[in-house]
Amino acid sequence: MRVFFAAPAAMWDRWAPALRAACPEMELCRDGDPASFDAVIYAPGYPAAGREMDFSPFTRARLVQSLWAGVERIVGNPTLTQPLCRMVDPGLAQGMAEWCLGWTMRFHLGMDRYPQDGIWRNSVVPPLACARKVTILGMGELGRAVAAMLRGVGFDVTGWSASGKPVPGVRVLGAAALPEALARAEVLISLLPDTPQTRGLLDARRLALLPRGAVLLNPGRGTVLDDDALLAELNSNRLGHAVLDVFRIEPLPPAHPFWRHQRVTVTPHIAAETRPASAAPVAAENLRRAMDGRPLLHLVDPARGY
């Protein structure tokens, strides 16, 4: 099979060896007649920043396999008529779960409560994890991975999704129960995708439903959060802290108030990374399925946006 690698040039050296090792029957190319390719492997930033790829010449392609978990930068492309599959990388899910566990533990244990200044502070003892309520917004692959890791430590985890689709071992609330999901969240983790339905979901009204002193972790999508509303909640001392890994504009501009706020921690979109070694076999499996006419894995529904 012939596969076109539609990704920024800087990705070639890392991805090409892993993809070829996972799918040796594939001829992976960076140029050639678009009509000669059986599939496209895609990552945002191709053909250049700010430009959309034209998929219409790829008349033979049976699959467009994204290397990113999020597909908001491609799903609305009007030239995309081929089946689109998002990347569900077990390495990315593991990395996301570890990031969420680490930051949850930091605030659960009050690790910032003990400056090394010679003062003996033993008046506050943290509860056990089973007494700490965590809510996860978004119960897709990443949400389920995070829930499993936090539950493994003992946290009281509730999930929320628009569908309310059951997840074994986790209480999952549906769309109408969002106020309940927020009101219980001592730690709120947002793993929601970027869709018309989720943009601005965490606005002033909904942030006000969080318990006093709650902590917000957002490694999902920056568009879910109303930045001004979050700053207002932090400034009023209602919210305890926010750890933000994703933003409406990236890189986050140096003058943005998040950088200077004492109750905000900025991490530079590193909560989870698609790793070629673990992601290439996923792409290879979908390429084989496309060639054989079998159902594709992680097929995107354009109407839903993910």
Rank of each mutant, 00 (worst) to 15 (best):
G222C: 06
G91W: 01
W15S: 00
P196C: 01
P168F: 01
G118D: 06
P34G: 02
H298D: 05
G200I: 06
L182M: 14
R132S: 11
P47K: 04
V146I: 13
A255C: 05
A21H: 08
V187S: 12
H298F: 07
A6K: 07
V64G: 11
Q116I: 09
T274K: 07
W160K: 15
R14I: 00
I249N: 11
L296G: 10
P281V: 07
V246D: 13
A131Q: 15
R184S: 05
S278D: 04
L217G: 11
L109E: 12
M11C: 10
E98C: 00
E52W: 03
P251V: 07
A290Y: 08
L287I: 08
A204T: 10
H298C: 04
M96C: 04
E27C: 08
L230V: 14
V40F: 03
I119R: 15
P276H: 08
G110K: 09
G154L: 00
V153A: 13
L207F: 08
A242M: 11
G159N: 14
D226H: 01
R151N: 11
T198P: 09
L216P: 07
L84M: 01
R113C: 11
P302D: 09
A271H: 12
A271Y: 02
R151C: 15
V124R: 15
L128K: 13
D33V: 06
P83D: 04
L191W: 08
A10D: 15
W120K: 15
F37S: 12
M291Q: 15
W160L: 04
T265E: 09
V167K: 14
L244P: 14
P219R: 05
R289L: 10
A175H: 12
A49P: 13
I270E: 11
F247H: 11
G213K: 13
L299R: 15
P90S: 02
R51M: 12
P126N: 03
R248W: 02
W259F: 08
H256V: 14
V224G: 02
P257H: 07
F247A: 09
R106F: 12
A284K: 13
E98Q: 05
C85E: 04
F5Q: 10
G140K: 09
A255I: 03
A93H: 03
G45M: 03
L231M: 13
M26H: 02
S278K: 10
E72A: 14
A229F: 01
M96F: 01
P126Y: 12
L192R: 14
P8Q: 07
Y306A: 02
E52R: 11
G118N: 13
T274W: 03
I270K: 06
A16S: 14
P281I: 04
A284W: 04
L230C: 05
A43M: 05
A21M: 07
P253L: 07
K165H: 15
G222R: 01
T135A: 00
V146F: 04
V75K: 03
P251E: 15
N237L: 10
G174C: 12
W160E: 12
P34H: 06
L207M: 08
L202I: 05
M11T: 09
S161Y: 14
P44N: 00
M96R: 08
A303C: 04
V40Q: 11
G200D: 05
L191E: 08
P8T: 10
L209S: 02
P44K: 05
L63N: 08
P254R: 10
A9V: 14
A145M: 02
C29D: 15
L173S: 02
L28F: 03
P196V: 07
R62V: 09
V172H: 08
P219G: 02
G50V: 15
L128Q: 00
T195Y: 05
